[in-house]
Design a protein around this nucleic acid. Sequence first.
DNA 1: TGCTTGTTTGCACGCGTTCTCATTGCCGGC
DNA 2: GCCGGCAATGAGAACGCGTGCAAACAAGCA
Lengths: 351, 351
Amino acid sequence: MRTRANKQSGATIKDVADLAGVSAMTVSRVLNSGHRVRPATQERVEAAIRELNYRPNLSARSLAKARSLFIGLLYNNPNPGYVSELLIGLMNRCRQVGYHLVIENFGSTDEEWAADIDGLLSSSNFDGLIVAPPVSDFDSVISAIERADLPCVRIAPEQEPDLFASVRTDDRDAARRMTRHLLDLGHRRLGFIAGDAGHGASRQRMSGFCAALEDAGIELEDALIVEGRFTYRSGLAAAEKLLSMPEPPTAIFASNDDMAAAVVGVAARKGIDVPGQLSVAGFDDTHTATTLWPQLTTVRQPIADMAGAAVDLLTAAINAEPDQDVAQTQRLLPCEVIIRDSSCPVAPDRG
Amino acid sequence: MRTRANKQSGATIKDVADLAGVSAMTVSRVLNSGHRVRPATQERVEAAIRELNYRPNLSARSLAKARSLFIGLLYNNPNPGYVSELLIGLMNRCRQVGYHLVIENFGSTDEEWAADIDGLLSSSNFDGLIVAPPVSDFDSVISAIERADLPCVRIAPEQEPDLFASVRTDDRDAARRMTRHLLDLGHRRLGFIAGDAGHGASRQRMSGFCAALEDAGIELEDALIVEGRFTYRSGLAAAEKLLSMPEPPTAIFASNDDMAAAVVGVAARKGIDVPGQLSVAGFDDTHTATTLWPQLTTVRQPIADMAGAAVDLLTAAINAEPDQDVAQTQRLLPCEVIIRDSSCPVAPDRG
DNA sequence: TGCTTGTTTGCACGCGTTCTCATTGCCGGC
DNA sequence: GCCGGCAATGAGAACGCGTGCAAACAAGCA
């Protein structure tokens, strides 16, 4: 019985085998990295595959392999732009390597996840897991995965060396380069708006900022560093604080775009021209960065690359022998500093 | 051989059957809407399922059913916030009904899709397709799906009655209600920034705007309606045009949030206070709407509901007999008008 | 040539589920 | 008391692919 679902390319491995004059086994071998197959045979098989437009049935394959071919993505939604790009990057790479991505999202706190994570891991049959921030730092989740003995890759986790593999961007280096950009424009009083203290990336970005100042021989001034929480609202308060100082900074580097947008908003209220009187820099290159006037100088993370790397690491771990230690690879990817209209050389009268 | 993938919940249908003292067939019947099973038996089987924490193996199921259990999502990325929410809504509903979502994205024009769509449909084995805007209006894509004879649900397509089922929001009604909100605030000179003329929703929103004016007995003034293209940049030009009129509007309704953000930006440049001197309204309730000062009065689409409805319609079509006509259901969902800080009663000195 | 070694190929079976068809009870009507 | 019919259940065959093991084959060596 050919149903609608498979009538489109109804060829099975048997059909291919018949056409090529070999057994199904040989076709299977050709498909799965054709080792132990004579080149001539391989070519005949591949010709047959092309001719019949044969596509292996994924269900049958995963059934036979006792692998679900499913990868779970554990995340929650801190930022739609980030999530969207991450999802697409993951999906694309997954498809290339024959896996499927299943999304799981319980809540925004460690506790909310703790309640359901064990049930999830035992009931869904994932071959492995990718964990995106901030879930990648939830203890309950990580230890549950450890208990379940599932391969796992963490994206941008806080702690460095770990039981699991991880992919992260070099936020510290990027913040350092962005700060250097502002210094190169002649700015000397730089304000910094930190992100959520519990977020690993926050510390890295702040550390990069401080390092660049140190490189330039400028001493840190505590009042110029204010704490935010990555939200627009927290950015408003921080910007208000910085811009009402007796001697305000000539440039402000916010730890993400939302807070940078808040700086631009507050500046507009106060009649401070951006970038004429105040340069502003953000981080993340979200949609917001270009939906603002002036468009934001910011840092772009290689999200698609990270996604690809995460999938690669995970599939490697899935296919590795249990006693191998490839499962703990750490990968660090560089960011790109994007210069737009919100930063310019310091005004001469305020040098 | 129990591999890592299935050791977690190794119970098979056979184990359940043995424990319940029935055959696998009966268990299967209980699982798939237990018809023709005595209540007592059903209960015994369900108890066994619970006790063993049995989860049917999806691979085996889809193999036996000759269904891939995959739904393809055809889209491209006009707006990360929209996409992100749509994806999550689709995923969640898919998981509930036992399907999996596979994302496909080729490019932003009809032509780019035309090149690959046939190959995609014949090589991937989807049980059905969900097509998001703007792909849902690409002729090449729609006709390719028709040729492939695959069930399909379109999200927010332009043409009304159609071969395929569709889910759309009532943009016209929402725009009408938003316009009424502005009128209720006392505004009489309303500016409107239209969206991309090729985009179906654009016309609906404009039509709703006009209808509300008509309801209120206000005659349309052509100069107060300017064309945009849904981008921030096009919004800047449109706002510039409206706000440099000899007698500028006291309220501007933009066809999406990005263009509304542009209006706020231009107003700030010109020293026009929002909302004091100018009320602004957007559409979509994207992330931008709350990452702006003042936060935007806007229209929220029930994206998650649409996603759920799309999946429901599609699975209904997949499971329907070929000659049934459920495949053409149209569903219309209402939007919500969200009033924030960018709109307020008209200033008495300009009323 | 005969033996060994290594390479290439095929057969039969299993993966977990659903489906078709057959079987068992059971009831009521004759 | 017999039989047709229906509800509830089971036995066994697919579904398409991967794997263990054995067979066929080629090559190297004495």
